[in-house]
Design a protein around this nucleic acid. Structure first.
Length: 576
RNA sequence: CGGGGUGUGGCGCAGCCUGGUAGCGCACCUGCUUUGGGAGCAGGGGGCCGGAGGUUCGAAUCCUCUCACCCCGACCA
């Protein structure tokens, strides 16, 4: 392809509204343009990258026995009402009314639609297992679209759904998808980590996320990894063993109220009383589905709202504002405590149940209690793991034996796999006849790969200060030929020759035939980030040589004009 | 939805406070020169200043309403 025959509108300045480097590069290098908040046009280079990555996904899905179909993007809201998700995911669904005032939904995921399809079609265990997938545009009415394609309102996703007759078969289907995912990302040149994840609105019995680890601002998720074993989990889900547990033989001391003037934060209280934050208990007031709850965790910990939401089984969870806290406790924020607290049920974190003689707010301005004890001074209605892991804590899997520790990294989620169990098949009445002659619900799985977000994640992972550095498998073209002056007959002839030879050899080649200055072309070549650049200039051509350089490497190979195919092929083999 | 901010030519911005009929850099067009990392000179095209209403002799500028977009938060792949 010649540059002037396609459309690559590069920009010298990045549009001001792009935050992430990957988002800026997509705009600057002429891959995407914004149409509305979170809605993007994919320009020719992007189109090619998306097509290449989709093809990899398609090949690996097919190889894993999945069957490609296309379901409609538009669906009646009725199917969502049937599964019960109309209410739980409603806030993020793109909804509209047709001319008959029927409410429709632009799909963000297709569990309901695929389950509707299967119901009544698949009647026997003999027809199972089955795995159906599609690659298409998805819609989510994001509360706040941002980061370009990473949080868009319209995006492209591969979604697959498995139906199995029993748990054992489901586990096999699930494992097949996990393996296919590793192959997909490896082929795309991306190192991904599989981590345990919360199931969120999707529901079901468990989930994993596939993460591209980055050290840039684009890392949207925090993930914990063990340094001794392969434990890995999203912070939403990660558990850990306390590295400094309290003394279990400590004797209970008498409750004592003390003055703590102006000490409303953990730092202030620990500073004032000269005690460790581990001897404090934070009492946090939340509103869960309209009811007030008090949540107690140790002073040195962070509450994990995802875990709390799961623990309470709440649909809506929000931290109480200062007025609500004052109304409930009778004291300003910072002095809430469990002793004598009325109007809110108390839930405590597991760690707190082991703690004795801790310090709590007294529900009174400038006052705390010393030596509070669970059971003696107050009661809780629920207990569970409610706090987030933190760096340096012991691994929940191997920490007890080998002393493995957890360390966090930032990642971008590019794929996910859900063990849905029978959540949808039961609620939507999707059943088959088992070998025992009895009706039973399908055991389902759901598996997503974000096509557009993976492309951006690759850029967030692979770039430098000059531009994108594509992995070869998802680069829009493999080679860019840059004749420094295409108007010069000799350079033009050499460029055309290299172009036709590389093209005949089967490489995707882009030839920059623009009448631009050398500097502009070289900078644009670095910007759009094709794996290999062939530079053709007067100086080396005089010796019958052309220059071949990998975008990711600094050294350049001076090759003779005739060897272009050979050198390019050899160089490509070595590239990621 | 709460808080903050911005809308001026394709992109990046100044002008607004203190009203007088729009400017800079890049990009674009023409010509000449130039040609190995974002050229030089000369000439040129393009903006009803997001929209509506108001104040005023006069509004990009002041006031009201509205729309869009961005950032922080909640939410989320």
């Amino acid at each position: 392809m010649k540059w002037t025959h396609t459309y690559i509108p590069t920009l010298r300045d990045a549009p001001a509204d792009a935050e992430l480097i990957s988002h800026q590069l997509l705009l600057r290098a002429g891959y995407i343009r914004r149409l509305a908040a979170g809605v993007y046009i994919y320009l020719p280079l992007m189109q090619r990258t998306l097509r290449k990555f989709s093809q990899i996904v398609r090949e690996e899905m097919d190889a894993a026995g999945a069957i490609e179909i296309t379901m409609p993007v538009l669906a009646p809201s009725a199917v969502w009402k049937k599964s019960g998700r109309y209410d739980t995911v409603g806030h993020i669904q793109m909804r509209l009314k047709d001319r008959g005032k029927r409410e429709m939904i632009l799909g963000g995921t297709h569990e309901e639609v695929v389950t509707t399809l299967i119901t009544g079609e698949l009647k026997s265990y003999r027809q199972l297992p089955i795995n159906l997938y599609q690659i298409q545009a998805k819609f989510r009415d994001e509360i706040r679209p941002r980061f370009g394609l990473l949080r868009a309102r319209e995006f492209i996703m591969k979604d697959a759904y498995t139906f199995d007759a029993d748990q054992e078969s489901h586990s096999k289907s699930y494992q097949k998808m996990v393996e296919a995912y590793f192959k997909v990302f490896e082929r795309a040149g991306l190192d991904t980590k599989k981590v345990e994840a919360d199931t969120g609105d999707m529901g079901g019995e468990g989930a994993h996320e596939f993460m591209v680890i980055v050290d840039t601002a684009g890392g949207e998720d925090t993930v914990f990894f063990c340094n001794k074993c392969d434990y890995a989990a999203n912070v939403e889900r990660a558990t850990f063993r306390d590295s400094t547990p309290p003394d279990p033989d400590e004797k209970e001391l008498p409750l004592e109220k003390i003055e703590t003037p102006g000490a409303s934060t953990i730092e202030q209280v620990t500073g004032f009383l000269k005690v460790d934050a581990r001897k404090l208990a934070k009492t946090l007031i939340y509103k869960a589905d309209g009811e007030m709850v008090a949540v107690m965790i140790r002073g040195d910990r962070e509450l994990n709202e995802v875990k709390l939401k799961n623990h309470l089984g709440a649909k809506e969870l929000e931290m109480a504002g200062p007025e609500m806290v004052e109304k409930l406790t009778g004291a300003p924020v910072g002095f809430a405590g469990p002793v004598g607290l009325k109007g809110a049920k108390i839930h405590i974190d597991n760690e707190l149940a082991l703690l004795k003689n801790f310090i709590v707010g007294a529900n009174e301005n400038d006052s705390h209690y010393l030596n509070a004890n669970l059971g003696r001074d107050f009661e809780s209605v629920g207990q569970g793991d409610l706090i987030s892991a933190s760096d340096g804590e012991l691994c929940p899997a191997c920490g007890a034996e080998s002393g493995g520790k957890l360390w966090s990294k930032r990642g971008i989620e590019v794929g996910n796999t859900f063990m849905l169990g029978t959540k949808y098949s039961k609620s939507m009445d999707a059943k088959f006849l088992g070998a025992d002659g009895k009706q039973q619900p399908f055991i389902m799985g759901s598996y997503g790969i974000g096509i557009t977000r993976t492309a951006q994640a690759a850029i967030e992972r692979y770039h430098d200060d000059k531009g994108i550095i594509w992995p070869k498998a998802i680069a829009p073209y493999l080679v860019e030929i840059v004749p420094l002056n295409y108007e010069d007959e000799k350079l033009r002839a050499a460029a055309d020759k290299v172009y036709s030879e590389l093209t005949s050899a089967g490489f995707d080649v882009l030839l920059d035939d623009r009448p631009e200055r050398a500097g502009v072309k070289l900078n644009d070549a670095d910007l759009i980030g094709l794996p290999i650049r062939v530079t053709i200039g007067a100086k080396s051509l005089k010796e019958g040589k052309i220059e071949i350089k990998a975008r990711s490497e600094s050294e350049m190979i001076l090759a003779s004009l005739e060897d272009s195919v050979l050198v390019v092929r050899k160089m490509l083999e070595k590239l990621r």
